[in-house]
Design a binder for these strands. Structure first.
Lengths: 122, 122
DNA sequence: CCCATTGGTTACGTTGAGGTAACTGGTTAC
DNA sequence: GTAACCAGTTACCTCAACGTAACCAATGGG
């Protein structure tokens, strides 16, 4: 139950780094943030994560499903209906990733200002 | 001062998304986590972020500097010496990214288990 | 003298992420 | 008959990410 100091993302061979590589990713972040609103079907998710291509959304969802972060519910209907939702594990990832999204929104003006002065300097 | 609902990372054209793309990135996360320990020179940073190549570290640091998250101090010595540290803005990013790192370390076992059962299922 | 040492940067070549577009399936509406 | 519907899947192509290795310049050792 207590924290084993066994895993360290800064160590190249540590398996936790493969996990970090997956979650520290813009598409993963956006999909998880979108799914925070609750169970959703593929088309709605695609509309919510503005600009994501079908291929990338499919790939991202499959990876998240494989890692146990998202559940997939397919209905044998025509036209097909498929819904996705965060698992219990996925919910634990929601708050860190939403924090990242909030950071991006709250600090974008400072970032843009910094970029301008950096670019002007060269 | 209050929160304008002006920015939304889920909107493709929103500038905050470019910012999210930069911070929701494995190398960015690892470098910021490493720099949480304080001002550090290039070589030490490279050793701490195990497995990162010189080129990627340089590129990552330059992007972070451009966005105002990291300060760069170069000394005109031979051999050259350059130190980096988080800016005030960079410090505000430290806790969300460390949270991501912790998540990866704390939940890697569940993730590995999920992967196994997913792969076995196919 | 000459060469090795040192940290950061750059040039070059390779790999992989990601975009586009065409196609699948059975049912309903024209 | 044929067109539209939804969630993929595949093939193909492009461009960005990444790794490798050479390079720079002043100092110290032999």
């Amino acid at each position: 139950m207590s924290q084993d100091r066994t895993f360290d993302v800064l160590t190249a061979t540590c398996p936790s780094r493969t996990s970090l590589a997956r979650i520290a990713n813009k598409w993963t972040a956006m999909v998880v943030i979108a799914l925070s609103a609750g169970r959703m079907r593929f088309g709605d998710l695609r509309a919510k994560v503005d600009g994501i291509s079908g291929k990338v959304l499919t790939d991202t969802l499959r990876d998240l499903e494989r890692d146990g972060l998202v559940s997939r519910y397919a209905y044998a209907e025509v036209p097909p209906r498929v819904e996705y939702e965060l698992t219990e594990l996925g919910h634990t990832l929601q708050s860190p990733l939403r924090a990242l999204g909030h950071w991006a929104e709250q600090h974008i003006e400072e970032v843009l200002t910094a970029r301008e002065s950096y670019d002007a300097r060269r």
